[in-house]
């Protein structure tokens, strides 16, 4: 009987895994299909001064794009070329991924650890005066969009500490400020989840038992409630990573930090200068490549959550 249960359990986890894999394949296919839609504009001179941009969707061009992409992967093992000569998408990724990872990894750790601590603080002080510092602050930061914080800090730093070179990219600590900025929103998100998960355990008998045994409040929270709440916190690692990537996009773009998101913009084709947007090459290969990197970060975060749960035996 026990064996049947075990086999059943394994079957179920394989099924869940399969579902996830199919989901990711669908997302990647959708990404590729959207990016490869042809973007050839025909520009026709108008009778009056000026030009008219015209766009006509053609299935043959779309088909060509797709076959070229697939044959590129098959024959050259490459996602394609970039706007620069003799630079493949992989070369660009090798160049830009480490820079972004320098931000993402510290930011992920920061938002998880500090976020959970903040969440516990919010939970402990939810009914007393310090809840303004707890829930109130979490809440305020969740209402402030990342771009606002970035612009304000950028402005403040350039005005107050121009000598610190916090915004420079040539110092060894150049990743520090972006990492902190990127982690703010995900951190508050984690704090919110943590305090909600802790509150959901309210009123359970095991808490009353622990309290009646005379354990200190700290011990009850960390050893008893938190251990139970951790399961639902760790199932949110995917969303934390998604929020992180969103912030990364904004922060890198605004600070001009030359990472993945920055490259994504140059690849999107319209370079934005002061007066004009010009359509240069739409580098589909680069966009797909960066999309895949973001995707794998999300998968990695999900896997981390799974591994943590597994090692803590709270699956």
């Amino acid at each position: 009987m026990i064996y049947i249960d075990k086999i059943w359990g394994v079957m179920n986890s394989i099924k869940a895994l399969l579902k996830q894999v199919i989901l990711y394949i669908v997302i990647i296919c959708a990404l590729i299909l959207i990016v490869l839609i042809p973007r050839d504009f025909t520009v026709a001179p108008l009778e009056t001064k000026g030009l008219e941009i015209h766009y006509q969707f053609s299935w043959t061009a779309y088909g060509e794009n797709i076959t070229r992409f697939i044959s590129g992967i098959w024959n050259h093992h490459s996602l394609g070329a970039t706007q620069y000569e003799r630079v493949t998408v992989e070369d660009e990724l090798v160049r830009y991924v480490p820079r972004s990872l320098q931000i993402i990894i510290p930011a992920f750790l920061l938002s998880m650890i500090l976020g959970i601590l903040k969440g516990v603080y919010d939970y402990v002080h939810r009914y007393n005066k310090r809840s303004i510092l707890g829930n109130g602050l979490t809440w305020l930061f969740q209402s402030i969009p990342d771009f606002f914080i970035v612009v304000c800090i950028q402005w403040g730093v350039t005005l107050l500490f121009p000598s610190l070179k916090l915004l420079s990219q040539n110092t060894s600590y150049s990743f520090l400020l972006p990492a902190i900025l990127v982690s703010i929103y995900p951190m508050m998100y984690t704090a919110r989840i943590t305090s909600n998960a802790l509150s959901n355990e309210d009123g359970q008998y095991y808490i009353k038992v622990a309290q009646s045994k005379g354990f200190s409040q700290k011990r009850v929270i960390y050893k008893h409630i938190f251990a139970n709440a951790l399961k639902s916190i760790l199932s949110h690692t995917t969303s934390i990573m998604v929020h992180l990537v969103t912030s990364l996009l904004i922060v890198e773009y605004l600070l001009g930090y030359q990472g993945l998101s920055y490259r994504l913009f140059t690849a999107l084709g319209y370079k934005y200068s002061a007066e004009a947007v010009s359509f240069s090459l739409f580098e589909s290969g680069v966009i797909i490549g960066i999309g895949l990197v973001f995707m794998s970060l999300v998968i990695l975060a999900q896997f981390t959550g799974y591994l943590l749960k597994r090692s803590l035996r709270i699956l």
Binding site: I37, T238, T246, V298
Partner: peptide
């Protein structure tokens, strides 16, 4: 939900 909403929205809204 496995991909940032901003990127999804930007990619779709940038379709020719």
């Amino acid at each position: 939900s496995s991909f940032p909403v901003v990127i999804t929205a930007a990619l779709i809204l940038c379709l020719p």
